[in-house]
Design a protein around this nucleic acid. Structure first.
Lengths: 195, 195
DNA sequence: AGTTTTGTGTACTGATTGGTACAATGAACT
DNA sequence: AGTTCATTGTACCAATCAGTACACAAAACT
């Protein structure tokens, strides 16, 4: 349909490469030379296809959520709240396995503390983390209604706790903690689960 | 004793200001103009007194550990391991109260993901986080010897779990989660404690 | 074949980065 | 008073940052 020269690269593959760079370097730490080199394209192609650095980051973030992090929304469909959380923890830990450099979580380490230039990205990621807590809470409230969780369960705090452990696992993974230890921590963390 | 013009500023006060900037911005996100403005000095004074940006960060990190984070080594002196961990959690949460912009933990958000230039700092902080886990583990092993913790307690995993919750609390605090919710999470996290 | 339209590659822009040269300042010493 | 010497402020440095102008290349149209 469109006339003119066609794109010489696969935009989705290039986006995956960009995601890998942002994941390892964070938003601010990822430079355009490193991005374009990893993506196998040059700068004008990047700007033509993705807008600018911030828009590229947002697209990589979307791809992160629908790709590597897709286990999360899947896990929430588990029949029990406890099973959902166990699947979330194990899914996150399993996600670390195949990665070599980009360990941790993009939503946590993408822009936790950064310069003024990246403030909007930082706020966006913080809000995303908060909205994840809200998603957990709703799932747990549904579980209370179903009798899956005890009546009187503090769903807000439980959701916040799960998000806290998840964030802590992200920090641990970024610190080089081996997968086996992460699994043990996740198991121990489940001991706080309401009975 | 030394002749020549004396320093026109208090180096400790200036270091506290620098710490505040690194805390809020991270190592890479803190720029020299922002640092010098906050410290109330100009660039050559900074370099004369502290070396360079990386050395300034290390000195700020030392001050962070002996200042705002001093509650940690104090808490480890608590008679029981459980009391120590409870004091660590509440101490960390209380530390967030007085801060407005620099929320979270410098050791977590100082350089979680960053550019090549900050790689040495990132590795240093990662190692510091790991050594904190080792400190916890030793404290718990001592508690097992004392009969304070049950025999057969997996001290390594328990230590890793405490560090994970602490890191998660740092992420939550950096995301703007209010103090009251952090306290509830810490209380819930203690339900995983071995009985 | 020739025109149009889009992507590509090189080379550039202004702004900002961390780091310094150098002259002026001022306190302690003889 | 005059000498000494570390600190101070201004102005600068090379390198790097994100972003772009422009000529060239190639695919779809008449």
């Amino acid at each position: 349909m469109p006339s003119g020269r066609m794109r010489q690269f696969d935009a989705e593959v290039a986006l995956d490469r960009a995601l890998e760079v942002f994941w390892a370097r964070g938003y601010q730490g990822a430079t355009l030379p490193e991005l374009t080199k990893a993506m196998g394209i040059n700068r004008p192609s990047l700007y033509a296809a993705f807008g600018n650095k911030e828009q590229l980051f947002r697209k990589a973030l979307d791809r992160y959520q629908t790709g590597p992090m897709s286990f999360l929304s899947e896990a929430l469909k588990e029949p029990t709240a406890r099973g959902a959380v166990e699947t979330i923890f194990s899914g996150f830990i399993r996600m670390q396995r195949e990665r070599k450099k980009a360990r941790g979580c993009l939503i946590v380490s993408g822009a936790l503390a950064c310069g003024e230039e990246a403030e909007t990205v930082r706020r966006e990621l913080a809000q995303l983390r908060q909205s994840t807590v809200a998603v957990f809470r709703k799932r747990f409230e549904r579980a209370v209604d179903n009798g899956d969780l005890p009546k009187g369960t503090d769903c807000a705090t439980l959701a916040r706790y799960v998000a806290t452990v998840l964030g802590g696992l992200a920090v641990q993974a970024a610190s080089g903690t081996p997968e086996k230890e992460l699994r043990r921590v996740a198991t121990l963390a489940m001991r706080a689960w309401p009975s």
